[in-house]
């Protein structure tokens, strides 16, 4: 079996085992409503994780996604409250604002040569501060207002129980996988992450690739924001706080390596569902908060350690196989001589 397929199988098996553990040890886990609810919960994380997977495959990181969602959501809520713009226009603005966040990240990273970690940590603060700039105020005091536009609220809705955010996530995941596996950009993303210098030498404009993946992430943050405000029916100043870590955890659990060049959107989708199952299952135990956090942390750490050990093992096997082939080549060459 190819290494890639083996890794996918392991991801899916981990998810199934986790679901079975919760299914047999808690009440009401394997009900249709709960499963649809899990798929809803992973929607927003999953949509952003598609973009962040691209970034991580290029060996980058994006810590600003949660704040970008907070900023875009607040901007939309503000425009809805103060100007009563139509829902379609709000959605367009949301996607544009998210994309602008991505453009800015890409610019700082590729043009100003700031490392991704520092650049996106800084923009995280910048976007979070924009949340307060656009927050709705009454008598100088921040006041969160209910969104009443049905065109926006419907985005938090469902068709026959399946939430729109789930459908959109799955559609975007398929598109993301096609981009990674079937387009030139996908090849360039892998090449940039696997070895940027070699990619540069082979004529790939790696700066352009890195900028593009940040723009895609921003674009997806814009889409996620629409679903966020649609579901909550408001935008609050803490919206999206900590979301970036959920997203990164989903991406890494799904098999994308921080070192770059490895992973895909299939894995990320499994990772996003894994995170939602974990959250949902833990809540069913009614454990104290500390215990919940410990379980969540331990499971994530185990998954990441496993990924690292598995990666090292596979690398070793590849090297062994390469050495064997090289030795066979030498022997054959010797025999012929």
């Amino acid at each position: 079996m190819r290494q890639e397929n083996m890794r996918r199988l392991i991801s899916v098996a981990s998810l199934v085992i986790l679901a079975l553990v919760f299914g047999f040890t808690s009440n009401g886990f394997f009900t249709a409503t709960n499963i649809l609810s899990i798929l809803r919960e992973c929607g927003i994380t999953g949509i952003i994780a598609i973009g962040v997977s691209f970034v991580i495959i290029t060996a980058g990181i994006d810590l600003s996604t949660g704040a970008a969602v907070g900023f875009v959501s607040m901007l939309c809520a503000n425009l809805l409250y103060n100007y009563a713009l139509p829902a379609g226009l709000i959605m367009l603005i949301s996607i544009l604002a998210g994309t602008v966040c991505g453009v800015l990240n890409g610019f700082i990273v590729t043009k100003l040569r700031v490392p991704e970690f520092i650049a996106t940590l800084s923009t995280q603060y910048l976007f979070r501060s924009m949340v307060f700039v656009f927050a709705i105020r009454e008598m100088g005091v921040i006041t969160n207002k209910k969104i009443t536009d049905p065109g926006i609220l419907i985005m938090g809705g469902s068709i026959n129980g399946i939430y729109l955010v789930t459908i959109t996530f799955l559609v975007l995941a398929v598109i993301g996988q096609i981009i990674l596996k079937k387009t030139k950009l996908g090849t360039y993303i892998y090449a940039t992450g696997a070895n940027r210098k070699s990619a540069d030498l082979s004529g790939i404009n790696t700066d352009k690739v890195r900028w593009t993946v940040f723009i895609i992430t921003g674009f997806l943050c814009g889409i996620a924001s629409i679903f966020e405000i649609g579901r909550i029916g408001s935008a609050t100043t803490d919206l999206g706080t900590g979301l970036e870590f959920e997203v990164i955890a989903a991406v890494v659990i799904g098999g994308c390596a921080f070192s770059g060049g490895r992973g895909d959107i299939f894995g990320t989708t499994v990772g996003a569902i894994f995170m939602a199952v974990l959250q949902n299952g833990i809540l069913k135990y009614n454990l104290p908060t500390a215990a919940q956090l410990i379980i969540k942390g331990v499971v994530i750490v185990i998954m990441i350690i496993f990924d690292s050990v598995y990666n090292q093992y596979m690398q070793k096997k590849i090297h062994e196989k390469a050495n064997e082939e090289a030795n066979e080549g030498v022997q054959t060459a010797g025999g012929e001589a």
Partner: peptide, 23 residues
């Protein structure tokens, strides 16, 4: 790339537009 994402966005919009969507 842009067209792929726009197709996705349009598909989602069509789903919303085709009624049957409940809050």
């Amino acid at each position: 790339i842009v067209s792929l994402f726009l197709v996705g966005a349009m598909a989602a919009t069509m789903l919303m537009g085709c009624g049957g969507v409940k809050t």
